[in-house]
């Protein structure tokens, strides 16, 4: 019974440190809304780079969107790209420095809207880069407008009566699209709204970086995430909504590799 009288201070002093913020995330406070999935996605990406020992040779490409300030938070070499052009910039960097590990971190407005051409052609050429794609089904930073990935019937500020697929088209499953291309080595869809799914997503990102180190071609990790501000919900409600609605249209799991 002796352990029952331990105070938290004693556990902290004598116990094992099992989790602390990785040093590859800077101490800058994240500019994201409370409960946003970007924070978790940033953290697991940086933890994977730390575990693989790649911090000295990694170059990240920051997108335009909510995560435009990713270079402030990720403590590796970063480069900002023009809107949607992160895969093109990553191609250039990887071709000049083939021994570096290059990844892009993009949202759905960046990767699946303005940057569709760059994404598809970089994947089709099989560039040895890792693409991390955060899909929250909305343009979060500009005020919750409809994105190509917005679900049918989903409300946004530019589709206030819900997305009507007859006039506004169907949501773009860009991950399925790039999975069909011969240049991609590993295509997967993950989520970060539950502890178990975060651990799975981290494993997927690790596999993506390992395949890049083996020069196997483009590795593409989609992370289905929430946007509680854009969806007009609390963080907990938005995660429940994501679990109930988003995962039917965007099923989790490996699509290739």
């Amino acid at each position: 019974m002796s352990e029952n009288i331990l105070t938290p201070e004693e556990i902290i002093k004598t116990g094992e440190l099992v989790f602390k913020k990785t040093k590859l995330m800077t101490d800058a406070e994240l500019s994201y809304c409370p409960g946003c999935g970007h924070g978790v996605a940033h953290r697991i990406t940086m933890e994977v780079i730390e575990e693989l020992g790649l911090e000295e040779q990694t170059i990240g490409i920051a997108p335009v969107g909510c995560s435009v300030l990713a270079y402030e938070f990720m403590n590796v070499d970063m480069q900002e790209a023009a809107h949607g052009r992160a895969p093109a910039l990553a191609t250039g960097i990887k071709r000049v420095y083939p021994n570096k590990t290059v990844f892009t971190y993009q949202g759905d407005g960046d990767l699946a809207a303005i940057g569709t051409a760059e994404t598809i052609h970089a994947c089709n050429r099989g560039e040895n880069i890792t693409i991390i794609f955060i899909n929250n089904g909305i343009y979060g930073m500009t005020g919750g407008q409809m994105a190509p990935t917005t679900l049918p019937g989903m409300n946004s500020s530019t589709s206030p009566y819900g997305r009507d697929v007859h006039t506004m088209g169907y949501p773009l499953k860009i991950t399925e699209l790039v999975a069909m291309l011969p240049g991609t080595s590993y295509v997967t869809r993950q989520a970060v709204h539950k502890p178990g799914l975060v651990r799975k997503a981290k494993k997927a990102i690790k596999k993506a970086f390992e395949l890049q180190m083996e020069n196997k071609g483009t590795s593409f990790v989609e992370i289905v995430s929430n946007c509680n501000s854009g969806w007009k919900m609390t963080p907990v409600e938005s995660n429940e909504w994501l679990d109930k609605n988003m995962l039917d249209y965007y099923p989790l799991g490996d699509l290739k590799g």
Binding site: F19, E29, P34, V40, V198, R199
Partner: peptide, 19 residues
Amino acid sequence: GCMNCATVCPDMCITVYRL
């Protein structure tokens, strides 16, 4: 000390110790 809280924390506020 299961780390679930630290795993889902988007702002990396939580440090976990285990005995």
